[in-house]
Amino acid sequence: MHISEGYLSGPVLLSGAALTAIGTAVGLKRLDYDQIAQGGILASAFFVASLVHVPIGPSNAHLIMNGIIGLLLGWAAFPVILVALLLQAVFFQFGGITTLGVNGLIMAGPAVIVAYVFGPWIGRSGWVGTAAAFASGAGAIALAAIVMAASLFFTDEKFMAVAGTAIVVHLPIMGIEGVITAFCVGFLKKVKPEMLSG
């Protein structure tokens, strides 16, 4: 999902950076003192998850984990994901420095959307909560694929084709992350339910 340097035109890069800057500002404002340690742990998880390559199907995809980050942090997903993306660009050459804004939007935007759409359902007991958690994990990736296709649309590629391919390629990842998210939420509900209110 990381878009490399030199792929996008100036206006796309700028608008991506602007939107991510707004998201980050909102996120930092809403970041509670108590959430900081949690944010750091999730940033580390996001940073390392990109190295977990899933060799299923025709894809060249890796775990993203933006769904669970959105559920736990809400708007604070923006600064957290941005930090991890910066380090991924520096250490692994995933994405790039100029595309940080766009990549931040691709991955953190869906995290926030998922938090608003599925967040309220997470607290329910039984299968409703589990299904909502699964949908957050899988949905955040599908949304990321759509945002990515939208940002590539202005370059040279066809929106529907790219969005379609990206979603198909990430289907295994969506399944895996849905399950991971469902397990995490189930675990946290038992152990530390106050974390899920964020």
Binding site: G39, G40, A43, F47, V48, L51, V83, L87, F91
Partner: peptide, 12 residues
């Protein structure tokens, strides 16, 4: 990997 996680701990 370890270095990156170290940075994250530092930043936060």
């Amino acid at each position: 990997i370890i270095g990156g996680i170290g940075y994250i701990v530092g930043i936060f």
